[in-house]
Design a protein around this nucleic acid. Structure first.
Length: 505
RNA sequence: GCUCCCAUCGUCUAUCGGUCAGGACACCAGGUUUUCAUCCUGGGAAGCGGAGUUCGACUCUCCGUGGGAGCGCCA
């Protein structure tokens, strides 16, 4: 008798810093697969050509490796269902999309961006509840559509969605979920650049990779009908779905980097222990039958049960995570802790870099540690008044420059001193200020002192995410001192930023 | 606006019809410690509202209310 083994997956998109939410979802997928003696797969969803980067992909692997959530198959280690990177599977998606067109389950759409924008505008104006594509090209004569496709007319492939009735499916965490079909858009499956959208690629890959259980964030509930429809169109048996509650900010909104550090790499750099972070993430939506709060990955995997997952959107509480981390540290033997410190930053590799920077400024060996302390800390603690003073006493200006730099750093995939230098050169140019004058603020924000070690070398050793975090600390200090950057002012700055820094060349 | 999801201390949660509603973080008080931290002890702190079902509801049903998510050629 053929028994299907449980296969789960995490399918992150390599756009930006590896997100704490990715680790959270990965953790549950891993635990469920392990509990059932199945496999856990890592698949890279890099179908967004404009935003995906190889650097980001590597960071995801590094982050998950550091966190200690191992996968059985993935782009780095291969497996029977490869390739595990969607950009290398485009032929598969194209072929599948076309087969759907042949079956009449999908159709080519020749509507350009202009028509769609106009359509959306009209719908909004009319106060229409259901926005989205009107299905115009769905009514095209198939022969005519095929002719236009062959003629090379730009087009996308859209899914044909029933106009009436509803889609009902079972979510392993809840009761049956029912969603009316008329609220589902005629989803684009294949983009005009020939790449699939998430929806197509995701379904095709989950099927081809033998995924039996899709455990993902709650944000996907409303697009599950589309996915089910695609499975049905192919004649495939869909996997089981289980939607986890989303991690939240203190104000209950979906966890965002604006209100919390969300980069796993920041937590690594700041000195959180993988075991503590894993435990905390698990605790957010899972509890052991015996009620213990301190538990290992193995504990979670051994006891894992869908019924023990709680559904209220948990607020990610940095304070409790910190307390947890402290408890882990205090629970270790000193020798063991020393090992953790070595893995972290207290090793020859990091010290050599720090020493190289400090050497020209050193008179005594004992100057070394005080001089480099900021490289090893989390928050250097720059005072708001000093930050303002570094901008000629203008706290508002300081906040704006910090924010601009933060945005620029965040979006940079590669990171080293030259990249950092480039970013600040560019800002100095756009803001019409001398680099030297601009940098005074950042010496303070990043090192806590007005004069310090070479700043770009420091930034390299600090790492992108720690730099971003320290800028955030500085912004928080200014905010606390009565110079908030939010609401209209933030929006205005953001618009100016988009126009001046992001416009296509 | 429309669709869907969710709802126990400030926060994360336990409870699967009968409990003084338990634990953890945070907070407060006390104790141990040459300081601090740790550690220990104690304290305040919760079932969103209204109908039902039931001998009995935090627990089941319905209606409100509140919060969240989704509504892209992003994932």
């Amino acid at each position: 008798m053929f028994t299907m083994t449980v296969r789960t997956r995490i399918a992150p998109s390599p756009t930006g810093s590896p997100h704490i939410g990715t680790a959270y979802i990965a953790l549950f997928n891993y635990a469920f697969a392990r509990k059932n003696g199945g496999q856990f797969i890592l698949r890279i969803e890099d179908t967004d050509q404009s935003r995906s980067t190889r650097e980001s992909e590597q960071e995801i692997l590094d982050a998950l490796n550091w966190l200690g959530i191992p996968w059985d198959e993935g782009p780095d280690k291969g497996g029977p269902c490869g390739p595990y990177r969607q950009s290398e599977r485009t032929a598969i998606y194209r072929e599948h999309a076309l087969s759907l067109v042949e079956k009449g389950k999908a159709y080519p759409c020749f509507c350009g961006e202009a028509r769609l924008r106009e359509l959306r505008r009209r719908q909004a104006e009319a106060g229409q509840d259901k926005l989205g594509y009107d299905g115009l090209c769905g009514g095209l004569d198939p022969a005519e559509a095929a002719r236009r496709m062959r003629a090379g007319e730009p087009h996308v492939i859209r899914l044909r969605v029933p106009a009436e009735g509803e889609c009902a499916f079972k979510d392993r965490f809840r009761e049956e979920v029912r969603i009316p079909w008329n609220t589902i858009d005629h989803q684009v499956l294949l983009k005009s650049d020939g790449f699939p959208t998430y929806h197509l690629a995701n379904v095709v890959d989950d099927h081809l990779m033998g995924i039996t259980h899709v455990i993902r964030g709650e944000e996907w509930i409303s697009s599950t009908p589309k996915h089910l429809l695609i499975y049905g169109a192919f004649g495939w048996t869909p996997p089981e779905f289980a939607h986890l509650p989303l991690l939240r900010n203190p104000d209950k909104s979906k966890l965002s980097k604006r209100k919390n550090p969300t980069s796993i790499l920041y937590y690594r750099r700041a000195g959180y222990l993988p075991a503590a972070l894993r435990n905390y993430l698990g605790l957010l939506a899972y509890s052991l039958p015996d009620g213990r709060e301190r538990f290992s990955l193995d504990d979670m995997a051994a006891t894992f049960d869908f019924s023990r997952v709680s559904l209220g959107g948990p607020i990610f509480d940095p304070q409790k995570l910190r307390a947890f981390n402290g408890a882990y540290i205090r629970g270790m033997a000193p020798g063991e802790l020393m090992g953790e410190c070595r893995k972290w930053m207290l090793n020859d590799d990091a010290w050599l870099k720090a020493i190289s920077m400090a050497q020209p400024r050193l008179a005594l060996l004992s100057d070394l540690v005080p001089m480099t302390a900021f490289l090893f800390s989390d928050r250097p603690g720059a005072a708001a008044a000093d930050l303002a003073a570094a901008c000629g006493g203008d706290a508002g200006l300081a906040a704006q420059r910090l924010k601009l730099a933060q945005w620029e750093c965040e979006k940079s995939a590669a990171w080293n001193k030259d990249v950092a230098r480039g970013i600040f050169d560019r800002i100095a140019g756009k803001e019409n200020v001398k680099l030297k004058d601009l940098l005074r603020l950042f010496f303070l924000a990043l090192s806590g002192a007005e004069v310090s070690l070479p700043i770009f070398d420091s930034m390299e050793l600090l790492g992108r995410d720690m730099v971003v975090r320290r800028i955030q600390y500085a912004l928080e200090a200014l905010d606390a001192a009565g110079t908030p950057l939010k609401g209209k002012a933030l929006k205005a700055l953001s618009e100016r930023y988009e126009a001046a820094y992001c416009a296509a060349q």
